[in-house]
Design a protein around this nucleic acid. Structure first.
Length: 171
DNA sequence: AACACGATTTCG
DNA sequence: GAAATCGTGTTT
């Protein structure tokens, strides 16, 4: 029986957590009681109010509020009117950071994967440390990975748009 | 009250 | 290459 990641894991800096999530298992319990596990293959880091690509860079709002709270909670938001993005907040209260889930072995793309695993706004602020319907378990694996620039954030300008804060597990 | 836009995906 | 589609933040 594998133990899920606890609060301390999520309270680390996002640049520690984002790559560490690669190769770990995302566990889902659906409303009908069935469970599924997905291997995390791609993540992206958004780091604080300084990071012009991070939603927290424009200050706290109703939407991004959870990012300013304690690590381990989900930050969900709708993009382009049709895709839910799933992020997990990192660091302790007052430090707004989050990891965007960009890919699972079974699905590539942040919009596709939320559709696959069935999460939306009703998971906003869900706590991965205590939830009975979604959490992450360590697999013991520490896969090699590649770091690349983040996607779709050119508007953030230098140096943010070019920082290698997108992490992809090697095959 | 109105408007502009986005951490994307899909189709032609 | 461009449309789809709407909640959120900002401006009027």
């Amino acid at each position: 029986m594998t133990e899920r990641f606890g609060r301390d894991f999520y309270r680390q800096d996002v640049l520690e957590v984002a790559p560490a999530l690669l190769g770990q298992q995302l566990v889902r319990i659906l409303p009908d009681g069935t469970s599924s596990a997905y291997l995390i293959t791609e993540t992206e880091a958004y780091r604080g109010e300084e990071d012009r690509a991070c939603h927290a860079s424009k200050g706290r709002t109703l939407r991004n509020g959870v990012m300013f709270g304690d690590g381990g909670h989900l930050y969900m938001y709708l993009i382009y009117g049709m895709y839910w993005m799933m992020n997990v907040v990192t660091e302790k209260e007052g430090i707004p950071q989050a990891v965007l889930f960009r890919g699972l072995r079974e699905a590539g793309g942040p919009g596709r994967l939320t559709r696959l695993i069935g999460v939306d706004k009703t998971y906003y602020a869900e706590d991965l440390v205590t939830s009975d319907r979604i959490w992450i378990e360590p697999t013991g694996r520490k896969p090699a990975y590649i770091a690349a620039p983040r996607v779709g954030i050119d508007y953030a300008g230098d140096p943010w748009k070019d920082l290698p804060w997108r992490f992809l597990m090697k095959l």
